[in-house]
C-alpha cells in the first residue's frame, strides 16, 4: 500500500523524535507502571506480615476457635452483590485473631527446617548474581551492536546480536535450574507471599526475556534484509529493541536485590 507515514526514519523537526523511538519509550513507561504495581504489592505485603510469615508463609490457623464468626461473614458475602465491605470485614475480622493463632501454632509445623535460613531464596543468591552479570553483559552487547551499525559494520553487529541472544538463553537456563531446585525443596508460589511474588515477578520478567529473544532473533535473521533497502529504518529498529532490552535489564537490577537480598 502506498500510504506513506512520515517520520519513520527522519525525526520530526519540532519534537526531534522518530515514531518508533517515542512509541518504545511510551511503551516502557507503561511497563514501569506494570512492574511498579508488583513492587508496591511487595511493600504492602511485606509490611503487613512479620518477616517469618512473609518469607515462609503464616502458620496454619486453628480452625474451631473462630469458625462460628467466619460462617456468619461467609454467608453475608454470598448474599451480597459487590461486597466491598464484606471483604473488608473478612480481612479485619481475622487479622484480629492473628496473634492468638500464631501463639497456638508458631512452634509447630514446617518452620523448624528453615531455622538456619533467613529466606527461602537465600540459596539462590549465587545463581541470581551470576544471572545479573549475564543480563548486564547482554545489555552491553546490545548497545555495542547498535554502535557497530552506526559504524557501518554489519558483521560485528551480527556477532554482538548473536552474543546477546546466547546470553539471554544462558539467563533462561539458569532460571530453569533455579525454579526446579525451588520446586524440589517444596517451595511453590502458594508457599508464602514472598515466594508468590518471586515466582510471579520473575516469571513475568522471563516472559519479557523470551519476547526479547524473539524480536532479536527476527532482526538478526530475516529482518536484516532491511539493512540493504533502508539502513536508517533498520538502525532505528535496533535502537528501539535495544531500549526494550535495556529496560528488561533495568527491571532485573531492581528485582535482584528486592527479591533475593532484602
Amino acid at each position: 500500500m502506498s500510504v506513506e507515514i512520515p517520520y519513520i526514519t527522519e525525526p520530526r523537526p519540532d519534537t526531534g523524535l522518530t515514531l518508533a523511538k517515542l512509541g518504545v519509550w511510551l511503551f516502557l513507561a507503561s511497563e514501569v507502571m506494570l512492574f511498579g504495581a508488583f513492587f508496591s504489592s511487595y511493600v504492602v505485603l511485606r509490611a503487613g506480615n512479620t518477616w517469618q510469615d512473609f518469607a515462609f508463609g503464616p502458620a496454619p490457623v486453628v480452625q474451631d476457635a473462630e469458625s462460628d464468626e467466619g460462617d456468619e461473614w461467609a454467608e453475608e458475602e454470598a448474599a451480597s452483590d459487590e461486597t466491598e465491605d464484606a471483604d473488608e470485614h473478612a480481612g479485619h475480622d481475622h487479622s484480629a485473631h492473628d496473634a492468638s493463632a500464631h501463639a497456638a501454632d508458631n512452634a509447630g509445623s514446617g518452620h523448624d527446617d528453615h531455622a538456619d535460613l533467613h529466606s527461602p531464596l537465600q540459596t539462590a543468591i549465587p545463581m541470581a548474581t551470576f544471572n545479573t552479570i549475564v543480563l548486564i553483559t547482554s545489555s552491553v552487547t546490545v548497545v555495542l551492536a547498535y554502535a557497530s551499525l552506526l559504524l557501518n559494520n554489519l558483521g560485528r553487529f551480527r556477532f554482538y546480536f548473536g552474543l546477546t541472544i546466547a546470553l539471554a538463553f544462558v539467563f533462561l537456563g539458569v532460571k530453569y535450574v533455579e525454579y526446579t531446585s525451588k520446586f524440589a525443596h517444596g517451595y511453590f508460589p502458594a508457599t508464602s507471599p514472598l515466594l508468590a511474588l518471586y515466582f510471579t515477578m520473575t516469571f513475568l520478567h522471563v516472559l519479557h526475556v523470551i519476547g526479547g529473544i524473539v524480536v532479536l532473533a527476527y532482526l538478526v535473521g530475516p529482518g536484516t534484509k532491511m539493512w540493504k533497502t533502508n539502513p536508517a529504518q533498520f538502525t532505528g529498529r535496533i535502537e528501539a529493541v535495544g531500549l526494550y532490552w535495556h529496560f528488561v535489564d533495568l527491571v532485573w537490577i531492581f528485582l535482584f536485590p528486592v527479591l533475593y537480598l532484602l
Binding site: 545489555s139 546490545v142 548497545v143 535495544g242 531500549l243 535495556h246 535489564d249 533495568l250 537490577i253
Partner: peptide, 8 residues
C-alpha cells in the same frame, strides 16, 4: 540510572 542514562 547508569543503564538509563548511558545505555538508553
Amino acid at each position: 540510572s547508569l543503564v538509563a542514562c548511558f545505555f538508553m
